[in-house]
Design a protein around this nucleic acid. Structure first.
Lengths: 139, 139
DNA sequence: ATAAACCTTGGAGTTAAATCCAAGGTCAAG
DNA sequence: CTTGACCTTGGATTTAACTCCAAGGTTTAT
């Protein structure tokens, strides 16, 4: 169980040290120890918590939502399984929706990419909007 | 080709009229006509453009990125097919990555949901972090 | 013909999520 | 024993993306 200081952690996860302090201030990750001189020391558990946060952020969750998910972790004993399951299942629904939209978007861009000759000709006929309109679903 | 005023558009797309004016100010969608008295009038093309913007936003693109994609549309004649294809293919790579991450996240939450009894018992053993750790990929 | 519900503009305010700054303490290397 | 790279805190600033406000013009329903 090696301890890392904030700069090292920042480098590994490609975030600013300031961001880590910001996360700590907002109750997202807290270095579980301090050196004699007050330096933050992160252990493996801290790092997986951070990893979770960054991954959740990458898929579009806000810090508030992430905190909510992590709060389950904080005092598991005071949550009923049903609560946890409900919460997680809600997030799953959101994720499914995002996944569907993302797939749709990908399809559109793929069909555009295929339609586009890719050569030096004018892109007169490469229309993103046209490509997307084929999948259009507005009232 | 019916024209809609800003309030109607706002209602249909579930955004604020202010947001539409904001998008116009930032070069994202502009009502293609105005009434005698100066009211914005949106036509179908405007609406599909707006639809594109909102969908792109929903899958996590910033307004700047969206503007970039739409700028292709603006003066297609001055772009080579290769430029467009390159740009679109870049976005596709980003989308694939996001999709992969989202899938990974979903898997984790699913396995957590399955592991969680869902009953009234204490959630002592429902660990989001544990669930995610099984898929952990940090240096 | 007037109230209620729209719309206009310019500009100010808000929120989330950082990011930066200043003033100072710590630590390893030469 | 000092130089340079770290770290600390509190607080200010920035950026994106809205969101609101004030003062006033327009439309529509009664």
């Amino acid at each position: 169980m090696a301890f890392l200081r904030i700069g090292e952690v920042a480098k590994r996860f490609e975030v600013k040290a300031d961001t880590l302090r910001f996360y700590e201030k907002n109750g997202l990750v807290k270095a579980s120890a301090r050196s004699e001189s007050g330096y933050r020391l992160y252990n493996d558990a801290d790092l997986s918590r951070l990893s979770f946060i960054l991954r959740a952020k990458a898929v579009g969750f806000s810090l508030t939502e992430i905190q909510e998910l992590l709060s389950i972790e904080l005092d598991k004993a005071n949550w009923a399984c049903a609560d946890v399951k409900g919460m997680v299942d809600n997030k799953l629904v959101e994720i499914e929706a995002k996944l569907a939209e993302l797939n749709r978007f990908r399809q559109s861009l793929q069909s555009l990419s295929r339609a586009c000759c890719g050569g030096p000709d004018s892109a007169e006929h490469c229309s993103i909007l046209e490509a997307l309109e084929s999948q259009h679903v507005v009232s």
